[in-house]
């Protein structure tokens, strides 16, 4: 089977700093200057208080697994060679949720609420994906 390239993120203008950040191995999320809540994914306006005063803040990269799954079959074509691989929703220390992959792990040993930390995986010159690995893995 011809394996197509994995799709690059289709970037919204206002999210550009996030992807610039991951390329520099920084996990940048938004912080509302008015209500002081963290925001992810990046928004044009604060979804909590409707403020336009949004700044960028570097997240610690520490997170816990909210949920995860090991993809064993029927993955979209670009991801077939990676099977089995892990897709997860993690909750960052700052309180926001993010879809990601858990890497450098035994997929079947993962658990909900497990502590993970960010690792930056270069996709190409333009994009680096924020993925996560168990904190015990070094």
């Amino acid at each position: 089977m011809q394996i197509p390239d994995k799709p690059d993120p289709l970037v919204n203008n206002w999210a550009r700093p996030f992807w610039d950040g991951t390329r520099e191995k920084k996990l940048l999320i938004q912080l509302c200057s008015d209500c002081k809540k963290h925001i992810f994914y990046p928004r044009m306006v604060c979804p909590y208080c409707f403020s336009d005063n949004i700044e960028w803040a570097e997240a610690s990269g520490k997170a816990t697994i909210y949920s995860f799954t090991v993809v064993e079959s029927n993955a979209p074509s670009p991801f077939v060679p990676d099977m089995p691989f892990v897709i997860a929703v993690v909750i960052l220390e700052e309180g926001v949720r993010m879809l990601t992959n858990i890497v450098e792990c035994d997929p079947h040993a993962l658990e909900c609420e497990q502590a993970v930390e960010v690792t930056f995986v270069k996709k190409n010159d333009e994009f680096t994906l924020p993925q996560f690995k168990p904190v015990s893995a070094t």
């Binding site: 994995k6 799709p7 990676d82 897709i87 879809l99």
Partner: peptide, 10 residues
């Protein structure tokens, strides 16, 4: 296409 598809979500 920005926050899920690049991670293999389906």
């Amino acid at each position: 296409p920005e926050w899920e598809i690049p991670f293999g979500q389906n």
